[in-house]
Amino acid sequence: MQAEVKQVEQRVKSHWFKDGLGEVVGGLMFILLGVYFTLVELLGESSLVGGLLQAGFIVVFLGLFYLGRRLILGLKTKYVVPRAGYVEYRVDREHQMGKRIGAALFAAVIAAEAVISIRVPGILNWLVVLTGLLVGLMLVFAQLRTGGIPRFFFLGAFSLLIGIASGLTRLPDGYALGFYYGSMGVIFSVTGLLVLQNFLKKYPLQMGPADEE
């Protein structure tokens, strides 16, 4: 019976991803991060705007995170709840530490990207490769936790490949990061939109009251 309970748990968790909105908004946030890094590189630290952008990284990052979260919840309320219903997930204390470590690592890597201006010697821009690897691992982890979303494996592999490709371009850090985040953002958005399109077809708007009580 333990296996059945696990299956139900995974199915319910995968519900959050079945509309693709998380990927669409996440993709948009990645594109904005890509624009941010490209702008910082383009304007240079010495310019006023470039310096301000670099100094305000934490605000930009937290702002994007907050806006993304609000946007996802708003869109889900408007488009998903009337079609597929509402569910509030339990706080999974068992895996809470793992999630926090993952989020902290990701934030630390992005912060390092924003702050580090000296290039690591070698063929690859290791920071971009590390980002690709980290995002890839997070996607694979999400797939394993939900147990039914194979597209996350492909997205994870793409993340690593694009991370390596961005590193190999030997572009300045900001452009390489901009390329990575921009490309991943586009891939996330496209897959998210395709998933969303299928979801809207599969779950037409419910007419009338949801229950018969």
Partner: peptide, 26 residues
Amino acid sequence: MILATVESADFLFLQGETGLTKGNLS
């Protein structure tokens, strides 16, 4: 079993997950 894995869920969500009719579910 479904409700044990979540904090709360609405009627429509439960209907989708169980495949029950509205009357049955109710």
